[in-house]
Design a binder for these strands. Structure first.
Lengths: 250, 250
DNA sequence: TTTTTTTTGGTACAAAATACAATAAGTAAA
DNA sequence: TTTACTTATTGTATTTTGTACCAAAAAAAA
């Protein structure tokens, strides 16, 4: 092992004490929660699940669904539990966004929260699944009733930005669509999420060139024009290509 | 506001209770810490700051520098405090990576930790600044003495992956270099971080085409060949371009 | 059969990425 | 002073990729 430069122990900081020398009760006073930004897509519109709070603090306010983590619960599992209660689906695509830990972000005490974003095919999950408070609603992301409770405006904004970044660099868009979809539907999804138009012919070429879609033997039904072919996303092919250095781009 | 689909309140989950109805002492038992992955670059090598723990748990083990967050301390500030104690520099480039919250990740209790990565110009900071435990060392990232304490192997690996991603999409590489640098030095930095070679002429063209570097009137000194021009990174120009839709790409 | 709409395949051009050759500017040794 | 050597810098030719746009094909409905 190489050890080029040694920083000597010479701190004057009041904090430079090993953990174990400080009495536990002084530090183990944090609450920890998880807040979920659940995105869904329907009818060319990106939506997010919001709840209406039925209890203090912020009674009556709109908020992101979230909950305190139990002392014996992994935070990843807490996020899954919340999503399951909310949507009835247990294996959603889900990813951490950021941690929010300002001292005064929660009026009831020191609560640090981890943001998660999740992607749902709105058609697929059970709409009668569950919820907190007075109800759970799909809200168009352009019509969010601000301000949301706590620092949820901030948590939402950053989650959306992260989603918009992810969608260009990882094949996560498919999580928002049904199993079988047309290239036109995929394009509309991208246009809705990125607020940007694409050339139809070129979008199709780019996507197909990646070789991640399986062309099905089926076509659209009940449309009053030439029906489009249906495709499905091949996750295994993606994993294989990805391990060989391929990277998904827009 | 649009409210397409309403999820009715019908949960059977034992957890679906508003925060304020649950006794505080049951939930406010978490400790929260910050662990820093401090990257430095020297002599074409990427290094990371590790400490050697002088106390239990994991006494004698190598670990990432980190500390518990104080109940009245913002986590962002806690990270800054640790970096300041460690390097003597107060305004390092710093960014959150992820949160780690497995139930058993810390033997002393339920401690959730936020990972941060920071970038340092090794030449610039004061090597006698501070430290915990038995000492602080710059370690080549290819020679990390595994396993590190706690889940620090994991935290480090993910921080490195995030750095490798950031360096391609954001102009953070300059944080690892001195104020004034040559294009050759910049290229070597990229090659070291990404484990990949670049064509010298094309790398230069790509970087210069972005228009983010200021060509200085100075050249390299004390080299035994034709000295290269020195450049500096123009942060303001980047901000300006960025606000106009420009995005940095490798 | 015709109209309408959307899919699908193709082409022509511009821009960017890449490979590689040539020249310039310095040091160091003969 | 010359020559060899090393690295910086410029230039050019080629390939690849991105973009704009056109038109045929397919299906449904009138």
């Amino acid at each position: 092992m190489e050890e080029d430069i040694i920083l000597e122990y010479s701190t004057k900081s009041q904090y430079a004490v090993p953990y174990y020398e400080i009495p536990f009760e002084r530090f183990f006073q944090f609450g920890f929660s998880v807040d979920c930004v659940v995105f869904g897509y329907h009818d060319s519109r990106l939506k997010v699940l919001l709840i209406r709070r039925g209890a203090k603090p912020y009674e009556g306010s709109w908020a992101l669904p979230g909950d305190l983590v139990y002392p014996n619960e992994d935070i990843e599992l807490a996020a899954k539990r919340i999503l399951q209660d909310l949507t009835g689906v247990s294996n959603l695509y889900m990813e951490q966004t950021k941690v929010y830990g300002n001292v005064n972000r929660h009026p009831a005490g020191r609560v640090i929260t981890a943001g998660y974003y999740a992607l749902v095919d709105i058609e697929k999950h059970d709409p009668h699944a569950a919820g907190w408070a007075e109800g759970v609603y799909w809200v168009d992301i352009n019509d969010i009733p601000r301000p949301l409770a706590f620092d949820h405006d901030n948590i939402f904004d950053e989650a959306l930005a992260i989603l918009q970044h992810s969608i260009r660099h990882k094949p996560v868009g498919f999580e928002l669509l049904p199993e079988k979809f047309t290239l036109g539907e995929l394009q509309k999804l991208y246009e809705a999420l990125l607020n940007q138009e694409f050339d139809k012919a070129n979008f199709r070429k780019k996507i197909l060139a990646m070789n991640l879609l399986t062309e099905l033997k089926e076509v659209q039904k009940q449309v009053k024009h030439r029906p489009a072919k249906l495709y499905s996303f091949d996750l295994n092919r993606y994993k294989e290509l990805n391990s060989k250095g391929f990277s998904f781009e827009l």
